[in-house]
Structure formats: C-alpha cells, structure tokens
C-alpha cells in the first residue's frame, strides 16, 4: 500500500525533482526552506500540476506516467489533500463541506462513516456553522475531516500547523498521529519545522 513518487518539473525557472516512497502507517515529511517546491510536489501527486516527467503510483495503480502517457485526473486519484490554505467551501456549512466528497462516493468505496470522522476530529458542535466563523484550529479539523471522508488511499498534508497558534498545535498533531496509527494511511507531510518532524517520527525527504 505504498505511494511511489518520482517527479521532475521546471517551474518559474526553478527545477523541482523528487523521488521517494511513502509507506503506510508512516509519515513521510517533505522538508526544506520555503520556495523550494514542496507544495508543487504535493500538487503533482494530487494531479493539480502536471510534472514534466516522472511516474506516480499508488499500490501498483499508476496515477501518472509520462513515458506511458498516463495522467489520471485529480478526481480519480483518491488523494486526501489538506491544503495549507484549507480551501473550505465558503458557501457551504461545515456539514456540507465534510460530506462534499463522501456523497459522491459509491458506498463500496467508503471506509469511514461521517459519524466516525466527526467523532474522530471532535467537530460535532460545528456542523451548522459556515467556514468563515471557525477558528483556525476548528477549520483545520474540518479540512482534515473533509479529506478523510473522501475515502483517500493516501493523505497529503501541507503545513497543517502553520496557521495555528502554539497552544492549538498539539491537538492537530495528535489527530495526525492517530491517522498514522489507527487508519494506517500513507501520509505525505510538508513542513519546514524540524520539531514537527521529530514529534511525528517522520521519515525525512529533503528538497533543495
């Protein structure tokens, strides 16, 4: 159930190249200074940016292969992408944000019920709120819940702590550890903070 990534991209004159494998029940951290292309790697894995060359495969299913001409669109990649800017839908309440992907899934593909996700993340009291009224930590939980309810085969988390003050980081880190240990998903995690890496016992892929 590993995610294999090998991508190359030249963007705004900068060459981005990364090659790594993300194992299940393990957090793999993309580490490096800002501007080095960490988010671009996540975008390529999620199918939002097309690599110039390379190959991406999840558990043997090819998502992208420049040599074979395969480019699976984002809606079929089953990548649970939690964006740094969260991107909750501003016109929908928390409940509809959470269920956005879940409602579209065939029942056989779902592996988590809304009640499980809501309990897992502790967002039950927020369901009727609009995203604009949430605190940073609440919005972060909803964004993670929305991604989990899309029945992802792997998660991509882009600096999930960056918008939170120090006191709220622990709660989100605990959620991420539970995703690793209980859901046993491969997790690709972007950060520039060494403390997060050691706390999560993440395997480090350094981008430079």
């Amino acid at each position: 159930m590993a995610l294999e990534v090998d991508v190359r991209l030249i963007r705004r004159g900068r060459a981005i190249a990364a090659r790594f494998t993300v194992e299940p029940a393990q957090i793999t951290a993309l580490f490096g200074p800002s501007g080095v292309g960490k988010t671009s790697v996540l975008d390529m894995v999620a199918g939002l940016v097309r690599p110039d060359a390379g190959r991406i495969a999840m558990d043997g299913t090819v998502l992208f292969d420049s040599a074979a001409g395969v480019d699976c669109p984002p809606e079929h990649r089953r990548c649970g992408y939690v964006f740094q800017d969260l991107r909750l839908f501003p016109h929908r309440r928390v409940r509809d944000n959470l269920l956005f992907a879940w409602r579209r899934l065939p029942p056989s593909a779902r592996w988590m019920t809304p009640d499980e996700a809501i309990g897992f993340l502790g967002v039950g009291h927020l369901l009727d709120r609009l995203p604009a009224t949430l605190s940073g930590g609440e919005a972060q939980r909803v964004a993670i819940g929305r991604a989990l309810l899309s029945a992802p085969r792997f998660l991509a988390l882009d600096e999930p702590l960056s918008s939170l003050d120090l006191g709220r980081r622990d709660g989100i880190l605990a959620v991420i550890e539970r995703i690793r240990d209980e859901l046993r998903l491969p997790v690709l995690y972007v950060t520039h903070d060494p403390a997060e890496i050691s706390r999560l016992q993440a395997r480090v892929i350094e981008l430079a």
Binding site: A46, G47, L48, P73, P74, E75, H76, R77, R78, C79, G80, Y81, F83, D85, R87, F89, P90, H91, F100, A101, R104, L105, R146, A147, S150
Partner: peptide, 27 residues
C-alpha cells in the same frame, strides 16, 4: 471565483462539470 476552491473540489472527487455546478456556479 477562487480557482483554488475548484482545485480542492477536484481532489475531492468532483469532475469538471460537478465542480462547475457545486462550486463555480454558486459562487
């Protein structure tokens, strides 16, 4: 309309037409 929201909808399993209907059009 924030195109990043459309990208988010795509990663959540919505095809281009569903993304238009559920995100771009209402916004």
């Amino acid at each position: 309309v924030d195109r990043r929201l459309e990208a988010a909808a795509r990663t959540l399993g919505a095809g281009p037409w569903q993304t238009f209907r559920s995100v771009s059009l209402p916004l």
